[in-house]
Design a protein around this nucleic acid. Structure first.
Lengths: 205, 205
DNA sequence: AGATTTTCATACTTATCGATACAATAACGG
DNA sequence: CCGTTATTGTATCGATAAGTATGAAAATCT
Protein backbone atom coordinates (compact mmCIF):
# COMPACT_ATOMS: atom_id res chain seq x y z
CA UNK A 1 0.00 0.00 0.00
CA UNK A 2 2.84 2.37 0.78
CA UNK A 3 5.75 3.02 -1.51
CA UNK A 4 7.41 -0.32 -0.87
CA UNK A 5 5.62 -3.38 -2.20
CA UNK A 6 3.99 -5.82 0.22
CA UNK A 7 5.62 -8.95 1.57
CA UNK A 8 7.73 -10.56 -1.11
CA UNK A 9 7.60 -14.21 -1.86
CA UNK A 10 10.94 -15.50 -3.12
CA UNK A 11 14.46 -15.10 -1.88
CA UNK A 12 14.96 -11.56 -0.62
CA UNK A 13 17.30 -9.22 -2.46
CA UNK A 14 20.61 -8.86 -0.66
CA UNK A 15 21.26 -5.25 -1.60
CA UNK A 16 19.45 -1.95 -1.29
CA UNK A 17 18.30 -0.83 -4.70
CA UNK A 18 18.71 2.89 -4.11
CA UNK A 19 22.07 2.42 -2.49
CA UNK A 20 23.57 0.49 -5.39
CA UNK A 21 21.90 2.89 -7.83
CA UNK A 22 23.86 5.66 -6.17
CA UNK A 23 27.03 3.70 -6.74
CA UNK A 24 26.16 3.29 -10.41
CA UNK A 25 25.37 6.99 -10.64
CA UNK A 26 28.81 7.86 -9.38
CA UNK A 27 30.50 5.64 -11.93
CA UNK A 28 28.48 7.07 -14.83
CA UNK A 29 29.11 10.55 -13.50
CA UNK A 30 32.84 10.04 -13.45
CA UNK A 31 33.31 7.95 -16.57
CA UNK A 32 30.41 8.91 -18.83
CA UNK A 33 28.03 6.41 -20.40
CA UNK A 34 30.40 4.97 -22.97
CA UNK A 35 33.39 5.04 -20.64
CA UNK A 36 31.58 2.85 -18.14
CA UNK A 37 31.58 -0.93 -18.60
CA UNK A 38 29.31 -3.42 -16.93
CA UNK A 39 32.32 -4.73 -15.05
CA UNK A 40 32.94 -1.23 -13.70
CA UNK A 41 29.32 -1.10 -12.62
CA UNK A 42 29.06 -4.48 -10.96
CA UNK A 43 32.32 -3.92 -9.13
CA UNK A 44 31.25 -0.53 -7.80
CA UNK A 45 27.74 -1.69 -6.98
CA UNK A 46 28.97 -4.83 -5.26
CA UNK A 47 26.50 -7.06 -7.07
CA UNK A 48 26.92 -9.48 -9.93
CA UNK A 49 25.73 -9.18 -13.45
CA UNK A 50 22.45 -11.12 -13.37
CA UNK A 51 21.36 -9.19 -10.27
CA UNK A 52 21.99 -5.94 -12.09
CA UNK A 53 19.95 -7.03 -15.08
CA UNK A 54 17.14 -8.36 -12.91
CA UNK A 55 16.92 -5.16 -10.91
CA UNK A 56 17.58 -2.49 -13.54
CA UNK A 57 16.97 -3.96 -16.98
CA UNK A 58 20.14 -3.19 -18.88
CA UNK A 59 22.92 -0.63 -19.07
CA UNK A 60 20.80 1.95 -20.86
CA UNK A 61 17.88 1.71 -18.44
CA UNK A 62 20.27 1.76 -15.51
CA UNK A 63 21.79 4.97 -16.80
CA UNK A 64 18.40 6.59 -17.19
CA UNK A 65 17.43 5.54 -13.68
CA UNK A 66 20.71 6.97 -12.40
CA UNK A 67 19.99 10.19 -14.29
CA UNK A 68 16.54 10.40 -12.77
CA UNK A 69 18.04 9.97 -9.34
CA UNK A 70 20.68 12.60 -10.10
CA UNK A 71 17.98 15.06 -11.11
CA UNK A 72 15.64 14.26 -8.27
CA UNK A 73 17.87 13.79 -5.26
CA UNK A 74 21.14 15.28 -6.41
CA UNK A 75 22.12 18.54 -8.04
CA UNK A 76 18.85 18.68 -9.92
CA UNK A 77 17.06 19.43 -6.69
CA UNK A 78 19.32 22.43 -6.20
CA UNK A 79 18.24 23.70 -9.59
CA UNK A 80 14.58 23.35 -8.64
CA UNK A 81 15.09 25.05 -5.30
CA UNK A 82 16.76 28.02 -6.96
CA UNK A 83 13.73 28.57 -9.17
CA UNK A 84 11.67 29.25 -6.06
CA UNK A 85 13.64 32.32 -5.07
CA UNK A 86 11.50 35.46 -4.93
CA UNK A 87 13.14 37.53 -7.66
CA UNK A 88 14.71 36.70 -11.00
CA UNK A 89 18.02 38.10 -9.79
CA UNK A 90 17.91 35.92 -6.71
CA UNK A 91 17.11 32.93 -8.89
CA UNK A 92 20.15 33.51 -11.07
CA UNK A 93 22.47 34.20 -8.15
CA UNK A 94 21.32 31.08 -6.40
CA UNK A 95 21.53 28.97 -9.53
CA UNK A 96 25.03 30.03 -10.45
CA UNK A 97 26.57 29.96 -7.00
CA UNK A 98 25.03 26.63 -6.10
CA UNK A 99 26.22 25.26 -9.44
CA UNK A 100 29.74 26.44 -8.74
CA UNK A 101 29.49 24.67 -5.42
CA UNK A 102 28.20 21.28 -6.44
CA UNK A 103 30.27 21.14 -9.64
CA UNK A 104 33.33 21.17 -7.40
CA UNK A 105 31.97 19.10 -4.53
CA UNK A 106 34.94 16.93 -3.55
CA UNK A 107 32.67 14.04 -2.65
CA UNK A 108 31.36 13.87 -6.22
CA UNK A 109 33.01 13.66 -9.62
CA UNK A 110 33.67 17.16 -10.96
CA UNK A 111 31.15 18.52 -13.43
CA UNK A 112 27.55 17.76 -14.28
CA UNK A 113 26.22 14.37 -15.33
CA UNK A 114 23.81 15.96 -17.77
CA UNK A 115 26.76 17.48 -19.61
CA UNK A 116 29.50 14.87 -19.22
CA UNK A 117 27.36 11.78 -19.50
CA UNK A 118 27.35 11.62 -23.28
CA UNK A 119 28.10 14.94 -24.94
CA UNK A 120 29.14 13.14 -28.08
CA UNK A 121 29.05 9.40 -28.60
CA UNK A 122 28.79 6.54 -31.01
CA UNK A 123 25.59 5.63 -32.79
CA UNK A 124 24.77 2.94 -30.26
CA UNK A 125 24.49 5.52 -27.46
CA UNK A 126 22.59 8.13 -29.41
CA UNK A 127 19.48 7.65 -27.30
CA UNK A 128 21.44 8.45 -24.15
CA UNK A 129 22.82 11.60 -25.70
CA UNK A 130 19.29 12.53 -26.72
CA UNK A 131 17.96 11.97 -23.21
CA UNK A 132 20.63 14.21 -21.70
CA UNK A 133 19.97 16.83 -24.32
CA UNK A 134 16.30 16.84 -23.48
CA UNK A 135 16.98 17.21 -19.78
CA UNK A 136 19.22 20.18 -20.41
CA UNK A 137 16.57 21.75 -22.62
CA UNK A 138 13.98 21.13 -19.97
CA UNK A 139 16.09 22.93 -17.40
CA UNK A 140 16.49 25.87 -19.74
CA UNK A 141 12.78 25.91 -20.45
CA UNK A 142 11.92 25.98 -16.75
CA UNK A 143 14.27 28.87 -16.26
CA UNK A 144 12.76 30.71 -19.21
CA UNK A 145 9.29 30.25 -17.77
CA UNK A 146 10.48 31.56 -14.46
CA UNK A 147 11.79 34.66 -16.23
CA UNK A 148 8.55 35.06 -18.15
CA UNK A 149 6.68 35.14 -14.86
CA UNK A 150 9.17 37.68 -13.54
CA UNK A 151 8.62 39.81 -16.60
CA UNK A 152 4.85 39.61 -16.23
CA UNK A 153 5.22 40.67 -12.60
CA UNK A 154 7.45 43.60 -13.51
CA UNK A 155 10.39 42.01 -11.75
CA UNK A 156 12.15 41.95 -15.12
CA UNK A 157 11.91 44.91 -17.47
CA UNK A 158 9.47 44.99 -20.37
CA UNK A 159 12.32 44.87 -22.90
CA UNK A 160 14.03 41.88 -21.33
CA UNK A 161 14.31 38.64 -23.26
CA UNK A 162 13.43 35.68 -21.02
CA UNK A 163 14.53 33.09 -23.56
CA UNK A 164 17.87 34.79 -24.18
CA UNK A 165 18.49 35.31 -20.50
CA UNK A 166 17.73 31.69 -19.73
CA UNK A 167 20.04 30.51 -22.49
CA UNK A 168 22.81 32.76 -21.25
CA UNK A 169 22.57 31.45 -17.71
CA UNK A 170 22.48 27.84 -18.90
CA UNK A 171 25.47 28.47 -21.13
CA UNK A 172 27.51 29.79 -18.23
CA UNK A 173 26.49 26.81 -16.10
CA UNK A 174 27.44 24.34 -18.81
CA UNK A 175 30.71 26.11 -19.38
CA UNK A 176 31.42 25.87 -15.68
CA UNK A 177 30.79 22.14 -15.93
CA UNK A 178 33.51 21.87 -18.57
CA UNK A 179 35.79 24.01 -16.44
CA UNK A 180 35.18 21.78 -13.43
CA UNK A 181 35.90 18.68 -15.49
CA UNK A 182 39.18 20.32 -16.41
CA UNK A 183 40.11 20.84 -12.80
CA UNK A 184 38.91 24.36 -12.05
CA UNK A 185 38.55 25.07 -8.33
CA UNK A 186 35.47 26.30 -6.55
CA UNK A 187 37.03 29.73 -6.17
CA UNK A 188 37.71 29.82 -9.90
CA UNK A 189 34.08 29.11 -10.66
CA UNK A 190 32.78 31.59 -8.13
CA UNK A 191 34.87 34.27 -9.83
CA UNK A 192 33.24 33.31 -13.12
CA UNK A 193 29.86 33.60 -11.45
CA UNK A 194 30.67 37.14 -10.33
CA UNK A 195 31.51 38.14 -13.88
CA UNK A 196 28.47 36.42 -15.29
CA UNK A 197 26.25 38.28 -12.86
CA UNK A 198 27.55 41.56 -14.19
CA UNK A 199 26.11 40.70 -17.57
CA UNK A 200 22.91 39.88 -15.80
CA UNK A 201 22.72 43.25 -14.12
CA UNK A 202 23.10 44.94 -17.48
CA UNK A 203 20.46 42.86 -19.19
CA UNK A 204 17.60 42.49 -16.82
CA UNK A 205 16.03 45.72 -17.99
CA UNK B 1 65.04 19.25 -48.43
CA UNK B 2 61.55 20.74 -48.66
CA UNK B 3 58.67 19.73 -46.44
CA UNK B 4 57.95 16.50 -48.28
CA UNK B 5 60.54 13.77 -48.02
CA UNK B 6 62.69 12.85 -51.01
CA UNK B 7 61.94 10.10 -53.52
CA UNK B 8 60.31 7.18 -51.78
CA UNK B 9 61.50 3.67 -52.26
CA UNK B 10 58.71 1.15 -51.91
CA UNK B 11 55.19 0.99 -53.23
CA UNK B 12 53.67 4.47 -53.18
CA UNK B 13 50.85 5.29 -50.81
CA UNK B 14 47.50 5.38 -52.57
CA UNK B 15 45.91 8.08 -50.43
CA UNK B 16 46.72 11.62 -49.36
CA UNK B 17 47.67 11.64 -45.71
CA UNK B 18 46.22 15.04 -44.88
CA UNK B 19 43.06 14.33 -46.76
CA UNK B 20 42.26 11.13 -44.86
CA UNK B 21 43.36 12.77 -41.63
CA UNK B 22 40.65 15.34 -42.22
CA UNK B 23 38.14 12.53 -42.60
CA UNK B 24 39.30 11.02 -39.32
CA UNK B 25 39.07 14.41 -37.67
CA UNK B 26 35.46 14.75 -38.68
CA UNK B 27 34.57 11.36 -37.27
CA UNK B 28 36.29 12.06 -33.94
CA UNK B 29 34.67 15.49 -33.87
CA UNK B 30 31.21 14.05 -34.31
CA UNK B 31 31.50 10.89 -32.23
CA UNK B 32 34.16 11.66 -29.66
CA UNK B 33 37.19 9.48 -29.02
CA UNK B 34 35.45 6.59 -27.33
CA UNK B 35 32.42 6.75 -29.60
CA UNK B 36 34.60 6.25 -32.66
CA UNK B 37 35.64 2.73 -33.65
CA UNK B 38 38.41 1.77 -36.01
CA UNK B 39 35.77 0.52 -38.41
CA UNK B 40 34.16 3.96 -38.37
CA UNK B 41 37.54 5.45 -39.12
CA UNK B 42 38.63 3.14 -41.93
CA UNK B 43 35.24 3.46 -43.58
CA UNK B 44 35.28 7.26 -43.46
CA UNK B 45 38.92 7.48 -44.47
CA UNK B 46 38.53 5.02 -47.31
CA UNK B 47 41.58 3.03 -46.31
CA UNK B 48 42.00 -0.30 -44.63
CA UNK B 49 43.25 -1.05 -41.19
CA UNK B 50 46.92 -1.84 -41.78
CA UNK B 51 47.27 1.32 -43.88
CA UNK B 52 45.89 3.33 -41.02
CA UNK B 53 48.29 1.80 -38.54
CA UNK B 54 51.24 2.21 -40.89
CA UNK B 55 50.47 5.87 -41.52
CA UNK B 56 49.25 7.05 -38.13
CA UNK B 57 50.45 4.62 -35.47
CA UNK B 58 47.31 3.71 -33.60
CA UNK B 59 43.95 5.12 -32.60
CA UNK B 60 45.37 7.31 -29.89
CA UNK B 61 48.10 8.80 -32.05
CA UNK B 62 45.64 9.31 -34.86
CA UNK B 63 43.39 11.26 -32.55
CA UNK B 64 46.21 13.45 -31.39
CA UNK B 65 47.24 14.12 -34.98
CA UNK B 66 43.64 14.99 -35.79
CA UNK B 67 43.56 17.31 -32.78
CA UNK B 68 46.76 19.01 -33.91
CA UNK B 69 45.24 19.53 -37.32
CA UNK B 70 42.04 20.86 -35.77
CA UNK B 71 44.01 23.37 -33.75
CA UNK B 72 46.33 24.37 -36.55
CA UNK B 73 44.17 24.52 -39.64
CA UNK B 74 40.67 24.53 -38.20
CA UNK B 75 38.93 26.52 -35.47
CA UNK B 76 42.14 26.78 -33.52
CA UNK B 77 43.48 29.17 -36.12
CA UNK B 78 40.49 31.41 -35.55
CA UNK B 79 41.37 31.52 -31.88
CA UNK B 80 44.93 32.55 -32.68
CA UNK B 81 43.80 35.20 -35.14
CA UNK B 82 41.49 36.75 -32.56
CA UNK B 83 44.38 37.20 -30.15
CA UNK B 84 46.01 39.53 -32.66
CA UNK B 85 43.24 42.12 -32.49
CA UNK B 86 44.44 45.52 -31.31
CA UNK B 87 42.44 45.85 -28.09
CA UNK B 88 41.33 43.42 -25.42
CA UNK B 89 37.72 44.24 -26.17
CA UNK B 90 38.25 43.51 -29.84
CA UNK B 91 39.94 40.24 -28.94
CA UNK B 92 36.98 39.12 -26.88
CA UNK B 93 34.41 40.21 -29.42
CA UNK B 94 36.25 38.42 -32.17
CA UNK B 95 36.79 35.32 -30.10
CA UNK B 96 33.19 34.96 -29.03
CA UNK B 97 31.53 35.81 -32.33
CA UNK B 98 33.86 33.61 -34.35
CA UNK B 99 33.27 30.80 -31.84
CA UNK B 100 29.53 31.16 -32.23
CA UNK B 101 30.05 30.94 -35.96
CA UNK B 102 32.27 27.90 -36.24
CA UNK B 103 30.50 26.01 -33.45
CA UNK B 104 27.43 26.05 -35.67
CA UNK B 105 29.13 25.69 -39.04
CA UNK B 106 26.80 23.36 -40.93
CA UNK B 107 29.72 21.75 -42.75
CA UNK B 108 31.21 20.58 -39.44
CA UNK B 109 29.88 18.66 -36.48
CA UNK B 110 28.37 21.06 -33.94
CA UNK B 111 30.55 22.01 -31.01
CA UNK B 112 34.27 21.98 -30.32
CA UNK B 113 36.53 18.94 -30.57
CA UNK B 114 38.55 20.06 -27.58
CA UNK B 115 35.39 19.90 -25.46
CA UNK B 116 33.44 17.01 -26.97
CA UNK B 117 36.37 14.74 -27.77
CA UNK B 118 36.60 13.17 -24.35
CA UNK B 119 35.07 15.26 -21.58
CA UNK B 120 34.73 12.17 -19.43
CA UNK B 121 35.85 8.71 -20.38
CA UNK B 122 37.01 5.31 -19.24
CA UNK B 123 40.42 4.71 -17.75
CA UNK B 124 41.81 3.51 -21.07
CA UNK B 125 41.22 6.94 -22.65
CA UNK B 126 42.46 9.01 -19.77
CA UNK B 127 45.47 10.24 -21.71
CA UNK B 128 43.19 11.62 -24.41
CA UNK B 129 41.09 13.44 -21.85
CA UNK B 130 44.29 14.81 -20.38
CA UNK B 131 45.53 16.01 -23.76
CA UNK B 132 42.28 17.86 -24.44
CA UNK B 133 42.35 19.35 -20.99
CA UNK B 134 45.83 20.68 -21.56
CA UNK B 135 44.87 22.23 -24.87
CA UNK B 136 41.95 24.01 -23.28
CA UNK B 137 44.19 25.27 -20.50
CA UNK B 138 46.72 26.43 -23.04
CA UNK B 139 44.07 28.44 -24.85
CA UNK B 140 43.02 30.03 -21.58
CA UNK B 141 46.61 30.79 -20.71
CA UNK B 142 47.23 32.51 -24.03
CA UNK B 143 44.16 34.62 -23.52
CA UNK B 144 45.27 35.53 -20.02
CA UNK B 145 48.66 36.59 -21.32
CA UNK B 146 46.98 38.72 -23.95
CA UNK B 147 44.99 40.42 -21.20
CA UNK B 148 48.10 40.91 -19.10
CA UNK B 149 49.68 42.72 -22.00
CA UNK B 150 46.55 44.83 -22.39
CA UNK B 151 46.67 45.68 -18.72
CA UNK B 152 50.33 46.65 -18.95
CA UNK B 153 49.50 48.88 -21.88
CA UNK B 154 46.62 50.53 -20.06
CA UNK B 155 44.12 48.99 -22.47
CA UNK B 156 42.62 47.19 -19.48
CA UNK B 157 42.18 48.97 -16.17
CA UNK B 158 44.67 48.58 -13.32
CA UNK B 159 42.10 46.75 -11.18
CA UNK B 160 41.16 44.27 -13.87
CA UNK B 161 41.86 40.57 -13.33
CA UNK B 162 43.39 39.06 -16.48
CA UNK B 163 43.15 35.49 -15.19
CA UNK B 164 39.53 35.86 -14.16
CA UNK B 165 38.59 37.56 -17.39
CA UNK B 166 40.24 34.85 -19.44
CA UNK B 167 38.50 32.13 -17.46
CA UNK B 168 35.16 33.85 -17.90
CA UNK B 169 35.56 34.10 -21.66
CA UNK B 170 36.67 30.47 -21.94
CA UNK B 171 33.75 29.38 -19.79
CA UNK B 172 31.29 31.10 -22.08
CA UNK B 173 32.94 29.56 -25.13
CA UNK B 174 32.85 26.09 -23.62
CA UNK B 175 29.26 26.55 -22.60
CA UNK B 176 28.43 27.54 -26.15
CA UNK B 177 30.05 24.33 -27.31
CA UNK B 178 27.66 22.35 -25.12
CA UNK B 179 24.78 24.45 -26.40
CA UNK B 180 25.80 23.79 -29.98
CA UNK B 181 26.05 20.07 -29.31
CA UNK B 182 22.50 20.30 -28.01
CA UNK B 183 21.25 21.87 -31.21
CA UNK B 184 21.44 25.59 -30.49
CA UNK B 185 21.40 27.75 -33.62
CA UNK B 186 23.94 30.33 -34.63
CA UNK B 187 21.49 33.10 -33.75
CA UNK B 188 21.01 31.56 -30.32
CA UNK B 189 24.74 31.63 -29.68
CA UNK B 190 25.18 35.15 -31.00
CA UNK B 191 22.55 36.29 -28.53
CA UNK B 192 24.55 34.63 -25.77
CA UNK B 193 27.64 36.45 -27.01
CA UNK B 194 25.84 39.77 -26.73
CA UNK B 195 24.95 39.07 -23.13
CA UNK B 196 28.42 37.82 -22.31
CA UNK B 197 29.92 40.99 -23.73
CA UNK B 198 27.86 43.04 -21.31
CA UNK B 199 29.67 41.38 -18.44
CA UNK B 200 32.87 42.20 -20.24
CA UNK B 201 32.04 45.88 -20.48
CA UNK B 202 31.39 45.99 -16.76
CA UNK B 203 34.59 44.21 -15.82
CA UNK B 204 37.32 45.55 -18.00
CA UNK B 205 38.05 48.38 -15.61
C1' DA C 1 7.57 -30.51 5.49
C1' DG C 2 7.02 -29.70 0.55
C1' DA C 3 5.92 -26.75 -3.35
C1' DT C 4 6.71 -22.21 -5.19
C1' DT C 5 9.05 -18.07 -6.19
C1' DT C 6 12.73 -15.05 -6.56
C1' DT C 7 17.72 -14.03 -6.11
C1' DC C 8 22.46 -15.27 -6.40
C1' DA C 9 26.93 -17.16 -8.38
C1' DT C 10 29.46 -19.29 -11.98
C1' DA C 11 30.24 -19.81 -16.43
C1' DC C 12 29.10 -19.00 -20.86
C1' DT C 13 27.51 -16.78 -25.68
C1' DT C 14 27.86 -13.74 -29.46
C1' DA C 15 29.64 -9.57 -31.23
C1' DT C 16 32.89 -6.16 -31.53
C1' DC C 17 36.92 -3.90 -29.90
C1' DG C 18 41.88 -2.44 -31.16
C1' DA C 19 45.71 -4.34 -33.31
C1' DT C 20 48.55 -7.71 -36.65
C1' DA C 21 50.47 -11.72 -39.62
C1' DC C 22 51.01 -12.73 -44.04
C1' DA C 23 51.21 -12.79 -48.77
C1' DA C 24 50.35 -10.28 -53.04
C1' DT C 25 51.40 -5.84 -55.27
C1' DA C 26 53.87 -1.84 -56.99
C1' DA C 27 57.26 1.31 -56.91
C1' DC C 28 62.51 1.95 -56.56
C1' DG C 29 68.04 1.08 -57.34
C1' DG C 30 71.19 -1.79 -59.37
C1' DC D 1 65.60 -8.45 -64.79
C1' DC D 2 66.30 -8.91 -59.88
C1' DG D 3 66.50 -7.72 -55.13
C1' DT D 4 64.80 -4.30 -51.87
C1' DT D 5 61.37 -1.61 -49.74
C1' DA D 6 56.98 -0.08 -48.58
C1' DT D 7 51.82 -0.43 -49.15
C1' DT D 8 47.69 -3.03 -49.84
C1' DG D 9 43.96 -6.51 -48.94
C1' DT D 10 42.36 -10.45 -46.45
C1' DA D 11 41.91 -12.87 -42.70
C1' DT D 12 42.74 -13.23 -38.12
C1' DC D 13 44.43 -12.48 -33.24
C1' DG D 14 43.44 -12.12 -28.07
C1' DA D 15 40.77 -9.21 -25.14
C1' DT D 16 36.70 -7.33 -23.74
C1' DA D 17 32.01 -5.63 -24.62
C1' DA D 18 26.98 -6.46 -23.29
C1' DG D 19 23.89 -9.80 -22.13
C1' DT D 20 22.19 -14.90 -20.41
C1' DA D 21 21.57 -19.97 -19.29
C1' DT D 22 21.59 -22.77 -15.48
C1' DG D 23 21.39 -24.56 -11.11
C1' DA D 24 22.09 -23.75 -6.10
C1' DA D 25 20.32 -20.89 -2.25
C1' DA D 26 16.91 -18.53 0.57
C1' DA D 27 12.79 -16.81 1.47
C1' DT D 28 7.13 -17.43 1.63
C1' DC D 29 2.80 -20.10 1.13
C1' DT D 30 -0.02 -24.12 1.86
Amino acid sequence: MTGKEAVQKGRPREFDKEQVLDKALHVFWKRGYEGTSLSDLTEAMGINRPSLYAAFGNKEELFKLALDRYLEKGPGSVHRASLQKPTATAVVESLLTSSATYLTDPSNPPGCLAVQGALSCGEASESIKQALCERRSLGEQQLRQRFECAKAEGDLGPDSDPAGLARYVMTVMQGMSVQAAGGASRADLLAVVDMALKAWSSSKS
